[in-house]
Amino acid sequence: MSTNPFDDTDGVFHVLVNDEGQHSLWPSFSPAPAGWTAALSDVDRRTAIDFVNEHWTDMRPRTLREASDTPA
């Protein structure tokens, strides 16, 4: 049985962010998909998760947040 690299507790990760401000943990051995950039690179899983929890506090996509914050 193989291990999912996204769940590897001993893995090395990047934290990726897209244009909508959404975050993703990404195994460092795999190239980032189009539209995503690294906000944090080559860290252990716990550090990556802590970064996401600290910086991604509103799960709504950026465009939805902006539309919700605009007065009618």
Rank of each mutant, 00 (worst) to 15 (best):
R62G: 00
W26V: 00
M59Y: 14
V17E: 04
R60A: 14
H23G: 09
S28E: 11
E54F: 08
T9M: 09
P27G: 08
N4L: 03
I49V: 14
P5G: 05
R45S: 02
S68P: 02
H14F: 14
T70P: 00
P5Q: 04
E20S: 08
T70F: 07
R62A: 09
P27F: 05
D69L: 15
H14K: 10
T70C: 04
H55Y: 09
L40I: 10
H55P: 01
L25V: 10
A38V: 04
F13C: 03
W56H: 14
S41E: 12
V52P: 03
P27N: 08
P61C: 01
W26Q: 00
T9K: 13
P31L: 06
V43Q: 08
P5H: 05
V52S: 08
E66R: 14
D10K: 15
A39R: 07
D44A: 05
S2F: 08
T37F: 10
A67T: 12
R65E: 10
A32I: 02
G35P: 10
N53K: 13
L25T: 10
N53H: 11
E54G: 11
L25I: 12
E20Y: 09
P71Y: 06
V12E: 04
R45Y: 04
T70L: 10
L64M: 13
L25C: 09
L25K: 08
M1L: 06
W26K: 00
T47S: 13
L25A: 04
E66F: 12
E20M: 12
R65F: 07
Q22W: 02
T63K: 07
W36F: 14
N53T: 07
W26Y: 01
P61H: 00
P31H: 02
T37Q: 13
D10A: 12
V12T: 11
P61W: 02
E54M: 11
A32Y: 05
P5L: 03
W56Q: 12
D8E: 07
S30Y: 06
P31Q: 07
G35Q: 06
P71Q: 07
N18F: 06
A39F: 00
M1Q: 04
T63P: 05
T70Q: 11
S30E: 13
P33G: 03
T63Q: 09
R46E: 14
A48H: 01
T63V: 08
A34T: 10
L64E: 15
N4D: 15
S28R: 03
S2E: 11
W36E: 09
E20D: 15
A34N: 09
R62H: 07
N53R: 15
D42G: 13
